[in-house]
């Protein structure tokens, strides 16, 4: 058992997301930085989709009532086990009775904590992800609180894996970040001058940003006409332009449909970077073709697949 002594800023149970329910208005939720999440699970020897913990901006403090094997990935943050500093991106053995204390995220916004055996939480619609707005999934459908008790799943037969030193992930989330995008469905709503502004502006992430979306501030992005868009489906990572002309990147807990024009869409391979953006971080958009975007995703998948080869 693991006791939450301090939940930190926003700590939730997540997996890769809940798919197949968008037509009921249910967005996938899931790890905001899915790549770091999967890596944490692989390091402890889990299936890459095992339920794990996502911590935001400021980490949690937990007490272990049993020995455990864990891995921490994602944003750089200090980890102290009973006063000793522990390191990231490798499996760690935790003795029963230990207290694990995560500090402030220094580089990036979210850290992932995976447990060998995964977390034992009920699946809702096939997923362990916490859907915060609807209050279901994960641990009782909400962020963790002080006093919560988590159970670790069965870890029989699981062996931790080590990353070869030269394969350590370069998780550079230093601002300004470049997010690669393809053009959005309503690209015709924006003139070439507006696209030029969109691609040359350094936007900043506002405080009104989180798992539902990231509100940006920079040059205003104004559509050619002021006509109303008929509501349609919103893809993950869509960059929509609301009435105030400040772009919003729709994220994992997004609305499934909406009525604002979409100028661009963050590519799948860069979604994990969105999950590491913090308020006041700066970012730029750069354009790639759909073909390039798919190729970049293939390369990323291959990297994750091959990373443990030759261990």
């Amino acid at each position: 058992m693991i006791r939450v002594k301090d939940p930190g800023f926003l700590t939730t149970v997540q997996d890769r997301g809940r798919y197949g329910f968008s037509h009921l208005g249910i967005s996938p939720a899931g790890a905001a930085d899915a790549l770091s999440f999967r890596l944490a699970n692989l390091l402890v020897g889990n299936d890459e989709n095992a339920p794990a913990i996502e911590m935001t901006l400021f980490g949690a403090t937990m007490e272990f009532d049993e020995p455990a094997v864990i891995a921490v990935t994602g944003a750089e943050c200090s980890i102290a086990t009973d006063g000793t500093q522990a390191s990231c991106a490798r499996a760690l053995s935790i003795a029963s009775g230990s207290v694990l204390r995560f500090g402030r995220m220094m580089n990036g916004a979210r850290a992932y904590l995976a447990f060998q055996g995964g977390l034992d939480v009920p699946l809702v619609m096939g997923s362990a992800s916490t859907h915060l707005a609807a209050g279901f999934g994960g641990f009782e459908g909400r962020a963790l609180r002080k006093g919560d008790v988590l159970r670790i799943g069965n870890r029989n037969g699981l062996r931790p894996r080590a990353l070869p030193p030269n394969k350590l992930p370069s998780l550079d989330f230093t601002s300004p970040v470049t997010l690669r995008v393809t053009r959005g469905v309503q690209q015709d709503w924006f003139g070439s001058d507006v696209f030029a502004t969109f691609f040359s502006t350094e936007f900043s992430v506002t405080d009104q940003s989180g798992r539902t979306g990231l509100r940006l501030r920079g040059e205003r992005i104004v559509p050619k006409n002021s006509s109303q868009l008929l509501t349609d489906g919103i893809p993950l990572g869509a960059v929509q332009i609301p009435e105030d002309a400040n772009p919003i990147i729709l994220f994992v807990d997004q609305q499934t449909t909406g009525g604002y024009p979409k100028i661009a869409n963050v590519i799948a391979a860069d979604m994990q970077r969105v999950g590491q953006l913090r308020p006041r971080d700066r970012l730029r958009f750069s354009e790639v073709s759909v073909e390039e975007a798919v190729q970049l995703l293939r390369t990323q998948e291959l990297w994750l697949k091959e990373i443990f080869e030759g261990e």
Binding site: Y19, G20, F21, S22, H23, P28, L230, T231, D232, G233, I234, P235, L236, T256, T257, A268, V290, A293, V294, L297, R298, E301
Partner: peptide, 22 residues
């Protein structure tokens, strides 16, 4: 095919681009 988003006059189809093309 991972998700379907029907709306008034359109359907958005979300799919796995590693195993399917547009």
């Amino acid at each position: 095919i991972r998700n379907l988003h029907p709306a008034y006059a359109s359907l958005l189809i979300d799919f796995d681009p590693l195993h399917m093309t547009h």
